[in-house]
Design a protein around this nucleic acid. Structure first.
Length: 664
DNA sequence: GCAAGGTC
């Protein structure tokens, strides 16, 4: 038998369809296997990595295992998907040839080799080869399977090295920080090659905001008239009040048009969606992890294409016109017609061969989908149609006006041909008015005003802007970035959106910068990429790369002052428990634990002010404050049901009020 | 109970 192994069930099914025509599906150990009619060929799909690298059981007790021993431990491969491993072993016994047809990239090569190792154990004499394809189309698949190559074990080795290095650094530093600060169990503090640099970006932005000193400046505005009224802004930003006032007083009641231009400016249609762009846009109304899971669902149900892609260029094999035509019989009829009138696809900078940009594949109707699913589906449809539509055209007018030597600028923008904007309705077209003028024309100055403003600190990152930043620095992959963010939330490192780091996050980043700064920098990923390339080329071996990491980490352990490290982190943890100021003595109020949890004053026993707290459910301090009491809003996440938020002081007052009534 | 990477 010829056995073909793909990265996931879905591609197994499609490849079997292309290669065999008619397919017999049978479940082996609960796993779909796609056979040809004569059962001489079979395709089976994995679930990505089916084995996981880990420390042996003896290393499980964090408190008892010396950290140093983690550096010398032999890692083991634990089977994660037991049923798939069993199915592979069974199929292997009947197979004389196995073709690895996982994704054509580094991680895919390792995923394939993992499966091959299980197969070889069951049948050592099986012959193995590799099929490489970059699109699941009949031509491409047939070509790949008629011209298979050798398995690239060096490439798999490179991916495995990444796993070892990530685990080693992650486990050692995670345990070091958690142990020294006493944050054990579910409260542990994680460290990693991707999450820590990401967190550092967030922490450093917050520090910039905290240290920001607003400086005042002055701007001058004026209203002019040539029959029609319009306003304009002085070209200069004044840093001194006196200068602004001098300029202001010079402006008389007449002005002259110095320059005037009218032109049509076209605004390019948006580029096709890759995962990052998609999550960024969905981020306007939905959290990225939710948007991602909905997109996966829509994909599984055949409404949209594969949502994990870096590609922003439609491949020529994609029949765009056929897809657009489907929407002529849908509520997007008008939009589809605009696209069909043009049909010139835009293209982004990134072109990869793995998957096409995200696009709809089937027409859905509103009643087939939940409300959120529909919003995501609609976004994908509108984006797709917009990428094929004509550019938008704006009529732009620009004027420079001289008012007694003071120069003002005014612009008018009017959308004359909406093009793609009629389809992609997520950006508002902001129009502004300027009447037609001509150079040398005299204007009346109707009014003038001077405004004091202040420079503003940079904004916090949002979920979508941080994902964009991660992409820029090559941190994580299209499939993991949103999960890294989720991790930062669940570790209590960040709160809210825009992202606000907690005090623990500050403490963790400060501690890491002092003890092992490389783990907080994107450079580490860059260096690892270089090492992996060299391993793939056969110029570097795994051991050398792993030893280099071990040596560095050993030095960290030798130089670290655990007591001091623990102290800084514990101080951060303490600050995160502070919810506001005590109304009786003005000291910090914090979440405390005695028999149950409650809010108490830090100057206890001098001050005995307390507030009650619900005893059940996970308690979180949110980034928001109550307007009335300047106290942090708290959130309870019950084990079942929806989470809810409250101000501890407000709800205490309310509760006391009700109590008073029942007694009186 | 640790990482990041696949996939669900």
């Amino acid at each position: 038998m010829w056995l073909i192994v793909t990265e996931k069930d879905n591609t197994a099914r499609r490849i079997a369809g292309i290669l065999f025509g008619r397919v017999k599906v049978r479940k082996i150990d609960g796993v779909n296997v796609y056979f040809s009619q004569d059962e001489k060929n079979a395709v089976v799909g994995l679930k990505g990595h089916i084995v996981e690298l880990d420390y042996p059981k003896e290393y499980n007790n964090w408190s008892k295992v010396p950290l140093k021993s983690l550096l010398k431990a032999d890692l083991v491969k634990k089977v994660k998907a037991r049923n798939i491993a069993k199915a592979l072993s069974q199929l292997a016994q009947k197979a004389e040839r196995v073709t690895i047809a996982t994704d054509y990239d580094r991680e895919g090569e390792l995923i394939g080799v993992e499966a091959l190792e299980i197969i070889k154990k069951a049948n050592p004499s099986v012959k193995a080869d590799r099929a490489k394809y970059s699109a699941i189309t009949p031509q491409e698949i047939k070509k790949a399977f008629s011209s298979t190559t050798k398995i690239n074990f060096n490439l798999a080795k490179a991916a495995e090295t990444r796993q070892i290095v990530d685990l080693m650094w992650g486990a050692l530093l995670t345990r070091l920080l958690s142990l020294s600060s006493g944050r054990l169990g579910k409260d542990f503090l994680s460290v990693g090659r991707v999450q820590s640099p990401t967190l550092r970006f967030i922490v450093e932005r917050e520090r910039e905001i905290q240290q920001f000193k607003p400086t005042p400046y002055w701007e001058i505005f004026a209203e002019f008239e040539n029959g029609e009224k319009f306003s304009a802004k002085h070209v200069k930003r004044f840093l001194k009040k006196e200068e602004a006032e001098e300029a202001f007083s010079r402006i008389g009641d007449r002005a002259v048009v110095k320059k005037y231009v009218e032109k049509d400016v076209s605004e390019r249609r948006p580029i096709p969606f890759n995962t990052t762009e998609f999550l960024r846009e969905a981020g306007k109304f939905m959290a990225p992890d939710k948007a991602m899971s909905i997109a996966e669902n829509l994909y599984m149900n055949g409404y949209i294409s594969y949502p994990r892609t870096d590609n922003t260029v439609y491949p020529p094999s994609l029949n765009l016109k056929a897809i657009v035509s489907k929407f002529l019989n849908s509520e997007f009829k008008a939009e589809a017609e605009i696209a069909l009138s043009h049909m010139k696809p835009s293209r982004g900078k990134k072109e990869t061969k793995d998957h096409p940009p995200i696009h709809p594949v089937e027409v859905a109707s509103r009643k087939d989908l939940s409300k959120d699913e529909w919003r995501i589906y609609e976004l994908v449809v509108r984006r797709f149609l917009a990428t094929l539509a004509p550019d938008a055209v704006w009529a732009v007018r620009q004027a420079e006006i001289d008012a007694s030597g003071e120069i003002f600028k005014a612009t008018g923008k009017q959308l004359v041909n909406p093009g793609w904007r009629a389809i992609y309705v997520y950006y508002k077209a902001e129009e502004s008015f300027l009447p037609g003028l001509h150079e040398g024309q005299t204007l009346k100055v109707l009014s003038k005003k001077i405004e004091e403003k202040k420079t503003k600190p940079p904004g916090r990152y949002t979920m979508s802007s941080i994902i964009k930043l991660m992409e820029k620095y090559n941190l994580g992959t299209k499939s993991t970035r949103h999960e890294i963010l989720r991790k930062l939330y669940s570790r209590g490192y960040i709160r809210g959106n825009p992202l606000k780091p907690t005090e623990v996050a500050f403490a963790v980043i400060d501690a890491l910068k002092k003890e092992a700064e490389v783990i907080t920098l994107p450079d580490m990923t860059a260096k690892l990429e270089e090492d992996m390339d060299r391993i793939e080329e056969g110029k570097q071996d795994q051991k050398a790369v792993v030893n280099e990491s071990a040596k560095f980490l050993e030095e960290v352990l030798e130089n670290v002052n655990e007591e001091e490290l623990g102290k800084t982190i514990r101080e951060g943890v303490r600050k995160d428990r502070v919810v506001g100021k005590c109304p009786e003595c003005g000291n910090d109020l914090e979440i405390r634990k005695a028999r149950g949890r409650f809010i108490g004053c830090t100057s206890y026993p001098e001050c005995r002010f307390t507030l009650p707290l619900p005893q059940k459910g996970r308690l979180e301090v949110t980034a928001r404050k109550c307007d009335k009491h300047d106290m942090s809003i708290l959130r309870i996440r019950p084990s079942k049901g929806k989470s809810w938020t409250f101000c501890p002081y407000c709800s205490y007052i309310e509760w006391k009020g009700r109590d008073g009534q029942s007694q009186g």
